[in-house]
């Protein structure tokens, strides 16, 4: 009986070692059910910062202006040169690069400062670059409760740039991820057909950036 009782000493010592380890080691953060519900609802957090960019704009094949050129977008019969701006509180907070001669303009929310095929050389140290994530993000940064306006344009060199459409938006109307809006009827103020707006939480998942990047890496040999 005495010997059986004395076994509590080694068992106690093992438990002491295990207990001390669990106390001293940093514990991984656990997701609470409250946090999960918040994510599932997909509503934007008004205090958080979000990246917003337009990944696709499709326009009607006729321009909005009336300059006796049979409603063509460009004077030389080319398709429009699309670009967009995001305005916040009357100021432009983001302007995209233009996409030439297309009815569908696509943009990615990230630009790497080197060609993807050269990345391995960069990593090996043959080319030295400093990559700052904030500088390579091609998106507007706004708070979750902001009101923004997306302005879409057709860039013209000789004539004034045409407006393609204007969408005033409250971020509270959008969901995290991809938001698609459609405009079935070409009106006097709106020559756009569909627009795909991406909203990504700054501290949240970056998979929306990662997946297009990986797809491109697989295509480029």
């Amino acid at each position: 009986m005495k010997k059986i009782l004395s076994l509590s000493v080694p068992i106690g010592l093992i438990l002491c070692g295990a207990g001390a380890t669990s106390l001293l080691l940093p514990q991984p953060k656990e997701t609470t059910s409250e946090q999960l519900t918040e994510t599932d609802k997909n509503n934007l957090d008004k205090d958080a910062t979000y990246y917003i960019f337009v990944s696709e704009i499709e326009v009607f094949n006729k321009a909005l202006d009336d300059d006796n050129d049979e409603d063509d977008w460009d004077d030389d019969d080319d398709a429009p040169d699309l670009f967009y701006k995001i305005n916040y509180q009357g100021k432009t907070v983001f302007e995209s690069p233009k996409r030439d001669n297309t009815f569908i303009g696509n943009w990615r929310g990230i630009t790497l400062p080197v060609a993807l095929k050269d990345l391995s050389t960069v990593i090996k140290g043959d080319i030295n670059i400093n990559v700052d994530f904030e500088q390579i993000v091609n998106a507007a940064r706004v708070k979750g409760n902001s009101d923004i306006t997306i302005m879409m344009y057709d860039h013209d060199t000789l004539t004034p740039t045409d407006i393609v459409g204007k969408i005033p938006l409250s971020l509270s109307e959008l969901n995290e991820g991809t938001n698609i809006m459609t405009n079935n009827k070409r009106t006097e103020n709106n020559g756009w057909k569909t627009i795909e707006i991406k909203v990504i939480k700054r501290e949240g998942s970056v998979k929306d950036f990662l997946l297009p990047l990986l797809r491109e890496m697989n295509n480029e040999k």
Partner: peptide, 28 residues
């Protein structure tokens, strides 16, 4: 004591890497 520590201490470390088309993209 060391057995107790050994059971709960980190034993394995996983290091995610990304190698595509013979290029190592892990650092980027």
């Amino acid at each position: 004591i060391t057995l107790g520590i050994g059971i709960l201490a980190p034993t394995m470390q996983t290091e995610p890497r990304l190698n595509i088309n013979n290029g190592d993209y892990t650092e980027i």
